[in-house]
Design a protein around this nucleic acid. Structure first.
Lengths: 239, 239
DNA sequence: ATCTTGTTCTTGTATGAGTATATCCGGCAT
DNA sequence: ATGCCGGATATACTCATACAAGAACAAGAT
């Protein structure tokens, strides 16, 4: 008996959610390709063993994320890749359920290399005391749990998210969930691949210290170093 | 009689689409605030004069974009701002239907200032001949139509999109739609505000020339300049 | 006080009928 | 042959109704 998928808080996923995930991963993995037409909804929902209601809602979700488009008479098509919202947190998560493309990992780190050092620089200038203590708390949790545990990885995410939030830039902050998803999954791969991975705690401490000291230049450099090392670790863990 | 809303290609929007837009703009404009609960779906769909089906699909769309969350018994809540996918192209478009927050405009330009110069630099190194001619075509269309016309603004978007695509970075490229939406709306405001706006054509030509010459450093600087000037124009046009 | 259990409210799923719209295709004019 | 026009048709879209299931809350038991 297939166990029902669960969300990040242990709640059972509704049918439309798990359908969206199932179809989404199928599209991202290349099982469906851009231009492909999904069969009519009666046919598809019948084949999947669900009613049309949740099937249609799943389609709506995927349309909202740019993976599909549907029109009367024309049917439901997979959109060309350049329309996909690859940085949508859920899309990223779906992407990482399969075997991730090393080239895409590289792209993600390249993007993080543009965003996070700048965010760290801004955070050093603009952060509030509360934001600083949030970073400190996340750092402490990372140290206590280690990156081998879910709690540790969640703390890692919180640290990066806190920096993006402290940049005082809403557009940057809204990329936090995307960056967070990337952080989580790449860290996951690193941990799985090597038994004694390099300890990234000092890198994080250095970033924190620079932000705490309100030293933008040093924060920028520290984050750049952190990302370079993290990428090297990740690259080493990939096939 | 209310005229039915239309999409960017003149097609009439389906009910679920226009509902999503209506609710989305209401949320983004602050009419609904984070934590607010929408009434039950029967009640709401009745109030809006539609059946539950399209109402629910509209909710699914907004959930997919991070603006809402809904659970049985608890109802449908507006999520806290930091969960919103502000860079989703549709969300951005909804954002600009109302009066845009000048601080957010600044944030968007700050983000573009991180992404686009780097993309231009990479494009100078990696662009294919086809991508280069796409940029040239967009540039020519901009010159022919001018930014006062829809065609001209679309060409402007195509130019920036082509550069992001030519960066060879999928993650960057997938931000093209978001950047494009920002380009379109800010340009729109500029045009509306002043009768004789500064001509940005030379800025664009400079970026193109640098990319065509495969000169990364110059491409980076030219794009930085373009964005600085565009931001100054936009800032002058805002209240 | 804390846990357990049951009630009840809200969203979630199922189903069948009917509408609307974009595509396709055949006919007509050019 | 080519292009325009208009109807047939396939498909998604909307409606209405019924039932199922999850989760919050409160009353009761421990």
């Amino acid at each position: 008996m297939a166990e029902r998928a669960r969300d990040d808080q242990g709640r059972a996923l509704r049918i439309h959610q798990s359908l969206a995930r199932q179809l989404g991963t199928a599209i991202l993995s290349g099982e469906y390709r851009p231009g492909d037409v999904l069969g009519g909804e009666i046919e598809q929902s019948l084949a999947l063993g669900v009613s049309r209601t949740p099937y249609r809602e799943a389609i709506r979700i995927l349309v909202a994320k740019g993976l599909l488009e549907s029109r009367p008479k024309a049917g439901t098509h997979v959109t060309p890749r350049e329309r996909w919202n690859l940085l949508d947190p859920e899309v990223l998560a779906w992407m990482f359920t399969g075997t991730p493309d090393p080239a895409f990992i590289r792209d993600l780190f390249e993007l993080r290399g543009l965003l996070e050092p700048a965010a760290a620089r801004l955070a050093a200038e603009r952060r509030s005391p509360e934001q600083l203590s949030e970073m400190a708390a996340a750092l402490a949790a990372m140290r206590d749990h280690g990156l081998a545990t879910d709690e540790g990885r969640a703390a890692d995410q919180r640290f990066h998210r806190a920096i993006l939030a402290a940049s005082g830039n809403l557009a940057l902050a809204s990329l936090a969930s995307s960056v967070g998803a990337a952080v989580q999954w790449t860290t996951h791969f690193k941990q799985r691949a090597s038994k004694r991975p390099r300890d990234p705690q000092p890198d994080h401490e250095a970033v924190y210290d620079a932000i705490a000291a309100a030293d933008p230049g040093r924060a920028d450099r520290a984050m750049t170093d952190l990302l370079r090392l993290a990428f090297e670790d990740t690259a080493a863990a990939l096939p």
